[in-house]
Design a protein around this nucleic acid. Sequence first.
DNA 1: ATCAATTATCTTGACGTGGAGATAAATCCT
DNA 2: AGGATTTATCTCCACGTCAAGATAATTGAT
Lengths: 157, 157
Amino acid sequence: MEATGIHLWLVLWKACEAVRRHAERHIHSLGLGFSDFAVLEVLLHKGPTAVNTIGELVHLTSGSITAAIDRLERKSLVARCTHPSDRRARVVHLTEVGRKLIECAFADHAAAMETATSGLTAAERGEAVALLKKLGLSAQTEGVNPRRGAAGVMIET
Amino acid sequence: MEATGIHLWLVLWKACEAVRRHAERHIHSLGLGFSDFAVLEVLLHKGPTAVNTIGELVHLTSGSITAAIDRLERKSLVARCTHPSDRRARVVHLTEVGRKLIECAFADHAAAMETATSGLTAAERGEAVALLKKLGLSAQTEGVNPRRGAAGVMIET
DNA sequence: ATCAATTATCTTGACGTGGAGATAAATCCT
DNA sequence: AGGATTTATCTCCACGTCAAGATAATTGAT
């Protein structure tokens, strides 16, 4: 078995794309995009959050996060309100409809991911998680620009 | 260690993004996009290839692969010529300039990936490759069962 | 107190991507 | 052979993203 860096990268990419296809198809069936789902997930797990904080968490630039929240607000899934102490900032929170949607969607999504990763046994998943965590962390700190991962919400625990 | 499907997916995604950042930064410094690099790499390793086939290999739809090859052709890195036996098909091949560029870029890229994955030992890389291959393959073949979309429309895979 | 630098957000323009057709060529069917 | 289906590619349009610049509010320095 070859173990060059580029080989590992290609296999990693392919696996990620394959699983991502499941995730995207499922999320798309809810009328949401990938980024929009990630924003809702942050709001579900972190509660009301400032716009730019969300942007950092889901790895979107200021322009993109503005567009994303515009989309979600247009669908009445989230709402912006003023920050209590900083008049520049806007705090985003889920509406009732939005909360219902993401709670349901996230449960469905977890099930879909269970299916998507069912090719590995529980033990293998554990090994994979350990290896990927190690790889992810080292690759992240290796880079010049250390940014927080888009899925940081779940990974913390 | 948690081993739920969604946890594995998030860790996989984060690791992939971290490594991808290395790859993208390097590729972008050549004035190329990610997809364009992938197309050139296919041509380098597979030789002249039909447009459609390249699209499948790098996971681009017909519209996207046309646009990608247009870009590369505009930069004189590739050229289209007619297929010997099928007059519908166009075969894409590297120009001299394109070959020089991708050969050089690929070597650089391999080195960058070596660095990016240096957080794992050779043995760990081997394990990771084996696990990811298994995961990727199963996730890929898992995706053939159609799902119901939001509007009640069946979504083909 | 005032001016400069920083921070948070939004706007604009360009670009890559995917999806729905359109066109042309090859293949299949009878 | 003639018509229908499939295949390969391209065109057009909508959308999401980013980068850079604009605006407004906060903080820091003197």
